[in-house]
Design a protein around this nucleic acid. Structure first.
Lengths: 218, 218
DNA sequence: CCGAACATACCAACTGGTTGGTATGCTGTC
DNA sequence: GACAGCATACCAACCAGTTGGTATGTTCGG
């Protein structure tokens, strides 16, 4: 059987994608990270139990602790993936194609406004939800969440830097503006959770857009 | 051992009322609400245990369930008091004495910037921390937190309404600006928790101040 | 080419400690 | 002597993590 196929297990696992093309057929590990991310965003870190995560992922507890040495380790994996996904989404966003720096920066704000307003998506940031709970009790998780914020802010800051550079005379503290942007995201998500009114997000982003547009000079 | 001291702890506790008249000597109920508010702001609703609250308040579990029928009931009491305290603090704030409406509204922003930057105070909003965790799982608590937001926004909105009324020609959606203000508060507190850098709060408020000042015309 | 040793990926049942909540008893006051 | 205001002891449910196992390969010496 399998003729002369000399294959490592890794190669074998990768085969699955070829074997059944229609079924998702994720590995148990990926399923756990995905399910956990969903649950953590909606219920928070403490309220989400390992059993819940396993149930949603369709695996057993044994599998859970085979892949992750603790619930906290899983949360770290989720935050890492969250950060990477955010980076990837940003890099692939259509506004990146715009060449004029001021327009590009403003289009970025609009892009995120549209993204967070998407009615099909859960309106919650994994990093924001997590850090709110564990900031004082779990420094490692707090720092992992903080890293997500810092990375995203860096990306937005460099957009702003380019925009302001193209506008002689106009100057601004772009680092603090990037933090304001992230604050607006987090605050908007929190208030929309509380009111169950997603329109808050768009309105807040509209104000931020107007403010930064004003700073850039019309 | 313990000689002739035959005194229950209850009798001992009761002695205090007679013993020290100057000490605050709060009732057990007030102590519970106060301790719980502190713990809930720092650790969140789920992570804070009834035993922890009792220990910090210096009362027993029996006392806890004598005054509150559940942990959730205590959280409701905390949120109610949080809302009332906020209202009282705002009513007594020095900026209220300013008569010129534009100046008063801008001074309000500065007042809250200073308040949330106070290094001696815990940088966390009870309503914000709570709603983040229970928005999807506990509608009653979510609505109680939402009420805090709505009340505070109403107060700020009427300041803005008066400011814009005094500026003919100038118009704005004051309701959405009030929400932006609350978003800025919540987002700033969250990011300052994550970074342990309280200066974020002041910087964000400075931007908000500049934006609204601009809308009001200089 | 074979088989023993090893590795990976999982699983079901269990454990020790924690949690919100209860049952009941005591004590000073009105 | 009734009742508010507690205290003590206790419990069932739940939770993160452990244990000991199975099924399916993979590796490698002979």
């Amino acid at each position: 059987m399998f003729g002369g196929m000399v294959k490592t297990k890794a190669a074998n696992a990768r085969d699955k994608t070829a074997r059944d093309k229609n079924a998702p057929e994720q590995g148990a590990r990926d399923k756990l990270v995905e399910s956990a991310t969903d649950l953590l965003r909606r219920q928070g870190y403490v309220a989400t139990t390992v059993d819940q995560i396993c149930a949603q992922a369709g695996v057993t507890k044994g599998a859970f602790f085979h892949y992750f040495e603790s619930k906290e380790a899983l949360a770290h994996a989720c935050l890492e993936r969250w950060g990477r996904q955010g980076e990837a989404m940003d890099a692939a966003a259509p506004y990146r194609a715009i060449e004029e720096p001021v327009e590009r920066a403003l289009a970025c704000i609009e892009f995120y406004a549209a993204f967070f307003s998407n009615p099909r998506l859960v309106k919650s940031c994994l990093a924001g939800t997590t850090v709110q709970e564990v900031a004082e009790t779990n420094p490692a998780l707090r720092d992992a969440a903080q890293a997500c914020f810092v990375d995203a802010e860096k990306r937005f800051k460099s957009l702003l830097d380019e925009a302001f550079k193209s506008r002689r005379r106009r100057r601004a503290d772009t680092a603090s503006l990037a933090t304001l942007w992230m604050s607006t995201i987090q605050g908007s998500l929190l208030l929309s959770k509380a009111s169950r009114d997603a329109s808050i997000i768009r309105k807040n982003f509209a104000h931020l857009h107007a403010y930064i547009k004003g700073l850039l000079g019309e």
